[in-house]
């Protein structure tokens, strides 16, 4: 199954060129059952990534453009009165999909943001007192536009904490962009992406991630790393949710790399993407100053 996952990775790499690291991290986030926050300029391939992920994994995909007048009901759905049957009928919102691209999440009002975030955390939504479970897997890719802050409501720290990873795709390098331009259209290639892995297989892969071994010594190192962020004034302290996310992400990362144990290198690899937005919510996504500082200052005895 891992080979199939690697095939997914390969096909994704054919769609989004020159972003192997980011694609692996995005897959890692999906495997770890976390949600992904992409911070990028428009036109960097965020939607393509989300769409490609959904397609190659055979997942249902919806995209919501967040605007300031978007209401929670537009997102989770509404009870609509059906005059013919004289009954209320639930019209499911876009949140009822397996991969949800929440585009420009910081443009929506905090009320709508929190409705989404609740859905992300609980994997269910409540409409008019009725709780409805969301499909599984439920994977949210939210995007933020870092440049245009006018009329946005930045996600508060507590809500940023819900996202396991924050990534930035960044500009492609010369060669990749050259190749991109030579192609007729990436959209058409996207449609060509076949379903490499069905939902059940993805579930099975996700269930294997927690079984990856993390030794006591490694957990101690991880805690030392997390702990070094606490009792400092130049950054926000990392919560236990952050340490859980780091370990889970490191496990997923080790799993993708074909290992059944987490190494300190895994932790160091995923740490900046897990920690940076938690340490400094106002930092830009391509930055990893604070997390690199912590990595350097925490001795690794292993």
């Amino acid at each position: 199954m891992l080979t199939q996952l690697h095939k997914v990775e390969q096909s994704l790499n054919q769609v989004i060129l020159g972003k192997q690291q980011q694609i692996r991290l995005a897959l890692c986030c999906l495997l770890a059952e976390g949600h992904l926050l992409l911070e990028d300029l428009p036109g960097m391939g965020k939607t393509t990534l989300a769409h490609a992920l959904a397609n190659s994994l055979g997942l249902s995909y919806r995209r919501v453009q967040f605007t300031s007048d978007l209401l929670p009901g537009d997102l989770v759905g509404l009870n609509i009165y059906d005059a013919r049957s004289q009954q209320f009928r639930f019209q499911a919102g876009p949140v009822f999909s397996q991969v949800l691209l929440a585009d420009e999440i910081n443009r929506a009002s905090p009320k709508t943001q929190s409705a989404l975030l609740e859905a992300m955390e609980e994997k269910q939504v409540s409409v008019d007192g009725e709780t409805r479970a969301l499909p599984t897997p439920f994977f949210v890719i939210a995007t933020q536009n870092p440049l245009f802050h006018a009329g946005t409501s930045a996600l508060p720290e507590s809500q940023l904490d819900r996202f396991m990873f924050r990534l930035s795709l960044g500009f492609p390098d010369h060669q990749a962009e050259h190749q991109l331009l030579q192609r007729d259209s990436s959209r058409s290639r996207l449609d060509l992406l076949s379903e490499q892995l069905n939902t059940d297989q993805l579930r099975a892969l996700q269930q294997q991630v927690p079984k990856v071994n993390a030794s006591d010594a490694l957990i101690d190192y991880l805690l030392a790393l997390i702990n070094s962020s606490r009792h400092r004034s130049d950054m926000l302290p990392l919560s236990p949710r952050a340490s859980k996310a780091t370990l889970r992400a490191a496990k997923a990362f080790a799993f993708i790399n074909g290992r059944d144990y987490v190494s300190a290198a895994d932790v160091q690899q995923v740490f900046p993407y897990v920690a940076e937005h938690r340490l400094d919510p106002s930092s830009a996504a391509q930055e990893s100053r604070l997390s690199q500082l912590l990595l350097q200052q925490t001795p690794c005895p292993l």
């Binding site: 030794s215 010594a217 190494s263 300190a264 290198a265 350097q296 200052q297 690794c300 005895p301 292993l302």
Partner: peptide, 25 residues
Amino acid sequence: PPATMLLQRALHPVLQLKPPSQPLS
């Protein structure tokens, strides 16, 4: 862990050049 101790003892002077934050492997 014992494995680390074993390695440190065997490779002692070499490992001194390792940056403290870098994993041994």
